[in-house]
Nucleic acid binder design. Structure first.
Length: 312
DNA sequence: AACAACCCCAACCGCCATCTG
DNA sequence: TCAGATGGCGGTTGGGGTTGT
């Protein structure tokens, strides 16, 4: 029961022989692949087009990296998977020379086990039930696919790495505004990785930007949090701004700056510095995690914590 | 040495979205 | 507008290599 494209032809299955590889490579190099369904016939192969496409993408493509994954690549996979879930093709886009199949196999054969051995659920990246102290102490880490809650941390305002100070700081926080949109940076910062650890793994500014979606709350629409980046939906962000809205947002910002007596250019400049401030953040999120999982959290409403947002 | 159990990963399968006539 | 073809993706399988007994 093959794919429709190869149901009519006599096709070969299984591993590719070096001869087949050579034929396919030669054909694609010379002619390209406008239509995969016609490739096998034209290349003299008894394979279906789909099989040829897969062989090219996963094995013959000249820009493939091969070899074992580096620790850096592994960390990138884990970080993006935490945000995107099993979207292997999307994850592979951030790993030059790696295919979705490769990433998927590496995840299933290696990373998954590693996470489980660390007591983490490989799907949600949350602590496994057996590793949680009690249901009351569970911190609701954001799961990109089904959670609308938010959990953002501010490195600016949290007392530096002092458990008691952190607890006191939590206690002093006001109630979170409703209807907050979940954002990638929220997800990223709510987990075990420190933001600067995560960012240090990404070599492209574009992707760092994707992770660093900055949430702005505007005076006239206090319950609507917006993202500055176009591909936010890749990360489960539920708002996408149309161009008109962007203009409106910028106008709001300018208005807000005028009211506060701030030069909007200065404010924009501050925005541009957010990346570096994020990167230089030395707040110990692991420590925070342990504090949150300790006695402090049992004295506070988990939902309240879950809903709360701190701005960078 | 022989066999079983396990693991890895290339390739396949089936579903869905998009394209095309 | 619609149906068939095609491409793309994630889940799954099974062959072959490795490790354990």
């Amino acid at each position: 029961m093959g794919h429709r494209c190869c149901s009519k032809q006599k096709i070969k299955r299984g591993l590719w022989s070096p001869e087949e590889d050579e034929k396919l490579l030669k054909y694609i190099t010379i002619h390209g692949h406008k239509s995969w369904s016609s490739v096998p016939k034209l290349a003299g192969l008894q394979r279906c087009g789909k099989s040829c496409r897969l062989r090219w993408i996963n094995y013959l493509r000249p820009d493939l990296k091969r070899g074992t994954f580096t620790a850096e690549e592994e960390q990138i996979i884990i970080d993006i998977h935490r945000i995107l879930g099993n979207r292997w093709a999307q994850i592979a886009k951030h790993l030059p020379g790696r295919t979705d199949n490769e990433v998927k196999n590496f995840w299933n054969s290696c990373i998954k086990k590693k996470l489980i051995s660390q007591g983490l659920d490989p799907q949600t990246h949350n602590l496994l039930a057996s590793h949680k102290r009690s249901s009351r102490n569970i911190i609701s880490h954001n799961n990109n696919q089904n959670s609308n809650s938010i959990f953002m941390l501010s490195s600016q305002n949290i007392p530096n790495a002092d458990p008691l100070g952190i607890s006191q700081y939590f206690s002093s926080l006001p109630k979170a505004p409703p209807n907050i949109v979940q954002t990638p940076s929220a997800i990223a910062s709510s987990e075990y990785q420190t933001p600067n650890n995560i960012l240090s793994n990404y070599k492209t500014l574009d992707f760092a930007n994707e992770l660093l979606l900055t949430e702005n709350c505007f005076p006239s629409c206090p319950n609507v949090w917006v993202s500055r980046f176009d591909d936010a939906e890749d990360f489960g962000v539920q708002t996408t701004l149309e161009e008109g809205t962007r203009v409106q947002v910028q106008q709001e910002k300018e208005k807000s700056c005028v009211e506060k007596g701030i030069d909007v250019r200065e404010d924009n400049y501050k925005d541009s510095l957010e990346m570096s401030s994020f990167e230089s953040c030395n707040f110990d999120f692991g420590l925070l995690e342990s504090v949150l999982a300790s006695e402090f959290i049992s004295d506070h409403d988990v939902n309240y914590m879950d809903e709360f947002a701190w701005n960078f």
